[in-house]
């Protein structure tokens, strides 16, 4: 069990998790958005590291990735800044497998762990191809978070639940990020995951407003909110404005939560 597993199991006893996503390096002051998110009530931060070919991302995160790459953002630069920022909540890095593969798995896992990163989401790293990475990451107490999709059949759900660390990422719909809104098939996906283990389950892909987040967390242990936030950063909203929005997510989720 990794540090992230323990922290998120503790968290589950207290409240539903709110996980905002931000694209690293999108603006010069991008880490201020992370601070603001924590102030607004985030429990975990998902930090996107841009990749040239983001197969699982829709137009908003693609645009953010392009802009970040144009600013010269690199994994090493992002990790330097994260290492210097004391956020007080676990940070999970989301990027594509080639970013790790290019550096060598051992080295990449070492860089992430040294910067204090708690886990990674690599959407194009399939369960079948994940063993070498999980070995490298596991040796550094770095959690590898896997995704279950609405299309995943039960036998695969079982294997993914047994393998995923930290939480299981439940994709609410058959779509890439930021293309549709609402929690879609989340209830069915979450129920399918619950049959195979007592792991924290967070819903993402399509959660774009506080009511949807509240709806999704009736079943799930947490929600991931990405494109809806990144769009606002792209539109020039300030960290303070994002903090206000995230605190609304926080309040709405907490109001809607069943008694613990």
């Amino acid at each position: 069990m990794t540090r992230l597993d323990r922290e998120l199991r503790d968290l589950r006893d207290r409240r539903r998790a709110l996980v905002p996503y931000f694209m690293a390096g999108l603006t010069p002051n991008w880490t201020q958005y992370l601070d603001a998110a924590v102030q607004g009530g985030a429990d975990v931060l998902e930090v996107g590291v841009p990749f040239s070919d983001p197969m699982m991302d829709g137009p908003v995160i693609q645009a953010a990735g392009v802009r970040a790459l144009e600013r010269g953002v690199t994994l090493e630069g992002v990790l330097d800044e994260l290492a210097r920022t004391d956020l007080g909540v676990p940070v999970v890095v989301m990027t594509y497998f080639n970013v790790m593969h290019y550096r060598g798995l051992e080295r990449a896992a070492g860089l992430l762990a040294s910067a204090g990163v708690a886990g990674v989401i690599l959407p194009d790293l399939s369960l079948e191809e994940s063993a070498p990475w999980r070995r490298a990451a596991g040796a550094r107490d770095l959690a590898t978070i896997l995704m279950v999709a609405p299309s995943t059949p039960p036998d695969r759900v079982a294997r993914i639940v047994a393998t995923s660390q930290g939480f299981v990422y439940a994709a609410a719909r058959m779509a890439v990020t930021g293309r549709a809104s609402g929690d879609g098939e989340a209830a069915r996906v979450v129920a399918g995951i619950r049959e195979h283990g007592d792991v924290p389950v967070y819903v993402g892909i399509g959660i774009s407003d506080p009511d949807q987040a509240r709806h999704a967390t009736r079943d799930a242990d947490g929600v991931i909110v990405g494109s809806a936030l990144v769009q606002r950063v792209l539109d020039g909203e300030s960290p303070a404005e994002l903090e206000t929005l995230i605190s609304r997510f926080r309040r709405t989720i907490d109001e809607g939560a069943p008694e613990a």
Partner: peptide, 21 residues
């Protein structure tokens, strides 16, 4: 069985596409 030719090939796709592959 995993689609590898030596060290190359394999199947690196989002989980949503794994059942289709």
């Amino acid at each position: 069985t995993g689609g590898h030719f030596g060290d190359f090939g394999g199947r690196y796709v989002p989980e949503a596409l794994m059942p289709a592959c």
